[in-house]
Nucleic acid binder design. Structure first.
Lengths: 190, 190
DNA sequence: CTTTTCTCGTTAGCCGCCTAACTATCCGGC
DNA sequence: GCCGGATAGTTAGGCGGCTAACGAGAAAAG
């Protein structure tokens, strides 16, 4: 689970000291980076612990949410069945992983897997009544956890937070402007 | 790898709509939460991609960094060998996981595993010259990636960012004040 | 119409993480 | 001194990610 390198984040003075040995080390950037990963990890753990109480992993939950289609993708009425490929796309895991998740969810009776009417290569994965009930039972506490976690932040701070996160996310996910891509820039001096 | 539930983050209006159905849903809190996890995930991916080029997973890297002891824990001179229990503590994974990671690193010649002189239950895991060289070769590009990722943020923004992250981290990791703990508060209405 | 090429889902196998159980060792009470 | 409980590391088994390779079916090229 942990995406982490050091559980106890280094003190800033240590980063400064290390920066003398490694000129490439930007202390403030490193500090933000480590805090980001650590906090993301702990936030994940908070909700994952809750979902695990209902035998639902984050991956399974993602599939259920995608199927439940809560206002995803403009213009879709809720509860539309999806293909494994669409599920992979929306949850951000590979198709191979979707196969495994759907296997588990199907065995538990939360989703059904039927041949796609139009294209015999495809499958159609739909949420069952049972799966829907599970979500309705789980979601309130799930939302409460997120609200609890963010309670220390004012509305203004939340706006700022999202803005900063978006800046980093935009850079991380590329919007590859050719020569400016991460790989190009960063391997130049390798 | 992905700690995520939805790859394409929902639009804010969708959260508002969902909040009508689920009174427990706090739209701004949910928005921050989803952005935090998504961004943390992508930031992780940025450095993980680089480490993977050297056949080093994040877990292995954590062990090497802990051993290299870069200014961890006040008063320790660098390069001190550690026990698996200490490694588990510092990297935030279980001891069982450390066993596996050290197995791999030992097979690759980056660390050595010797019996502890004082206590025959313990082992002493130390960094080899080869492991040290690996770190020195990898770290500059590693630091460059972190710096590149945070480049869009000004120094002021970085300070703010760390402050906000710390607020959430503090809440997530508890500092359990008895009745205020997450489990107590959140399961009250379950 | 045939053949090539692409896409879909699945499979197989790897890895890192977990928990639970086990063995060996140390320590504290009697 | 001995014996029960704590502690260190490992093992066994499960799970959910990944990549790579596959066969079935659709679509494009000829």
């Amino acid at each position: 689970m942990p995406h982490l390198m050091l559980k106890d984040l280094p003190r800033y003075e240590c980063l400064l000291e290390a920066a003398r040995e490694f000129p490439d080390l930007d202390p403030s950037a490193t500090e933000v980076f480590l805090h980001l990963l650590r906090t993301g990890d702990e936030a994940f753990r908070v909700v994952d612990t809750h979902l695990a109480q209902h035998d639902i992993s984050q991956g399974r939950f993602g599939v259920l949410m995608a199927l439940w289609g809560n206002c995803q993708r403009a213009g879709s009425e809720n509860e539309k069945p999806l293909t494994p490929a669409e599920l992979a796309d929306r949850t951000g895991v590979t198709r191979a992983t979707i196969t495994g998740l759907v296997d588990t969810l199907e065995a538990a009776g939360f989703v059904t897997r039927t041949p796609h009417p139009d294209d015999r290569r495809m499958m159609s994965v739909g949420l069952t009544k049972r799966g829907e009930k599970l979500l309705v039972r789980i979601l309130p506490a799930h939302f409460r956890r997120m609200a609890w976690l963010m309670e220390p932040l004012s509305e203004t701070e939340r706006k700022t937070f999202v803005r900063l996160l978006t800046k980093v996310l935009t850079r991380a996910t590329g919007e590859q402007t050719g020569a400016e891509s991460a790989e190009a820039v960063l391997s130049a001096r390798a």
